[in-house]
């Protein structure tokens, strides 16, 4: 069974309005096109939309670009999208990456882990405030694309946490994701 925008799902005596619903004249009405889901533990009815609007939540993996690095401890990230979702995020797309959340080791200088212009995959660890807090302390999280500081060309993966510029030979350090260089996964 599906409901469309403006459809009556049930009366207020049966269930309370949950996500994507509202109450009008003693009836619970759907606000989106989707599937109604009745939660008997909370006595609420929700509607799961067919075309969901992505909103950043805790636990989501996001793709972002580093727009500022504040020595010694903070990087500001502009979130481009939630991983594996087609639509752009419907909230203020900024996140903060603290030095302690970059990896599970002590970091002396944030500039040796991340740099301006890097594309990263990060996990949202707190979404209660804007900007949201991000972390990259897992194997699949970290930098997936980076550019050379000298010649602004894409860097290639060289060793464990080292990237090399094929043009000038410069070696740069990063917290690299295991998906480095793979644009297809986003």
């Amino acid at each position: 069974m599906i409901t469309i925008t403006g459809d009556k799902i049930c009366t207020l005596e049966e269930f309370l309005p949950g996500e994507n619903t509202y109450e009008y004249d003693g009836e619970v009405i759907s606000t989106v096109v989707g599937i109604p889901l009745k939660d008997f533990s909370t006595r609420k009815v929700h509607v799961k939309p067919f075309n969901e609007i992505p909103i950043i939540k805790e636990g989501d993996k996001v793709v972002g670009k580093i727009v500022d690095v504040k020595y010694p401890a903070i990087a500001l990230v502009k979130i481009i999208k939630i991983l594996n979702k087609k639509r752009f995020v419907a909230s203020i797309p900024y996140g903060v990456l603290y030095v302690g959340n970059i990896k599970n080791e002590a970091i002396i200088d944030i500039r040796k882990e991340i740099a301006y212009g890097d594309i990263i995959i990060a996990k949202v660890i707190y979404a209660g405030k804007v900007p949201v807090q991000l972390a990259t302390n897992e194997e699949d999280l970290g930098v997936i694309y980076a550019y050379c500081y000298n010649c602004n060309l894409p860097l290639k993966h060289h060793e464990e946490n080292k990237l090399i510029c094929e043009n000038c030979g410069r070696i740069e350090l990063r917290k690299i994701s295991k998906y480095y260089g793979r644009g297809d996964i986003i």
Partner: peptide, 11 residues
């Protein structure tokens, strides 16, 4: 708008 999944009171 309904197709885009935008919450609305009604069409």
């Amino acid at each position: 708008l309904a197709d885009a999944g935008i919450p609305m009171k009604d069409l």
